[in-house]
């Protein structure tokens, strides 16, 4: 299995580097805000874009790119099943998405150790607790599923980003109507995101199971 994870990592290291570069830029912006606290929560606002970046850079091309280059014909005619191939590829991608989210959370804590104010105000709520991790996995699964079904990055990228944005707005609207406190709300929302991510993973698998 570890060899298979190496294969998956070899195929995704460019995505990992791109996301790392974005995080570095983000870190630079955060450093500026730490020196100049009057920037008014720039770091917070930018944090909301992380899921979109994961979806665009990592999720959407993951399978669509294999179809475009024809390399799925290489990957899927070795001795392992497509299910195992997908599991290995997704494991590496999920680890990357979660790591990026953890790094971002650490940067945020460093810039604004004491946020204060209302914890349910969206920039704070969406970048703290469990929700950013669950959302990162949902963004990844959404990109992967649309890439597997449409087989084109140029379709999967904008479409998944659009759906993710709509989902984010719907989430905010629903959250506003609920009167749950911070943690129960976080748990509920994260559970819904993870469930959706699982469904999307299933769709991705069905999308590649019988196709050549």
């Amino acid at each position: 299995m570890s060899d298979l994870l190496w294969v998956a990592w070899r195929g995704q290291r460019a995505q990992a580097a791109a996301l790392a570069a974005l995080l570095l830029l983000y870190g630079a912006a955060a450093a500026v805000e730490r020196l100049e606290p009057d920037l008014g929560g720039l770091t917070f606002q930018l944090a909301g874009l992380q899921a979109g970046a994961i979806c665009l850079i990592w999720g959407a091309p993951l399978i669509a790119r294999e179809f475009e280059a024809g390399t799925h014909k290489l990957a899927w005619t070795q001795s392992l099943s497509r299910g195992r191939w997908l599991a290995a590829v997704l494991a590496v991608a999920a680890a990357g998405a979660l790591t990026a989210t953890a790094v971002l959370a650490a940067v945020l804590t460093w810039v604004l150790p004491d946020a204060g104010g209302d914890p349910t105000y969206w920039p704070y709520y969406e970048s703290h607790g469990l929700v950013p991790y669950a959302r990162a996995l949902l963004a990844l699964a959404l990109g992967v599923a649309l890439g597997a079904v449409t087989r084109h990055t140029r379709i999967a990228m904008p479409l998944s980003l659009l759906l993710l944005g709509v989902g984010q707005l719907v989430g905010r609207a629903l959250r506003g109507r609920s009167d749950l406190p911070f943690w129960p709300l976080q748990w509920t929302e994260s559970a819904i995101y993870l469930l959706l991510a699982l469904v999307l993973t299933g769709i991705a698998y069905l999308g590649i199971r019988h196709r050549a």
């Binding site: 014909k73 005619t77 001795s79």
Partner: peptide, 17 residues
């Protein structure tokens, strides 16, 4: 799958590897 080796049309390989 293990019984057949296949070289598809256009010989797809991971080009950056």
């Amino acid at each position: 799958m293990a019984a057949v080796a296949f070289v598809a049309q256009d010989k797809p390989l991971y080009r950056r590897w």
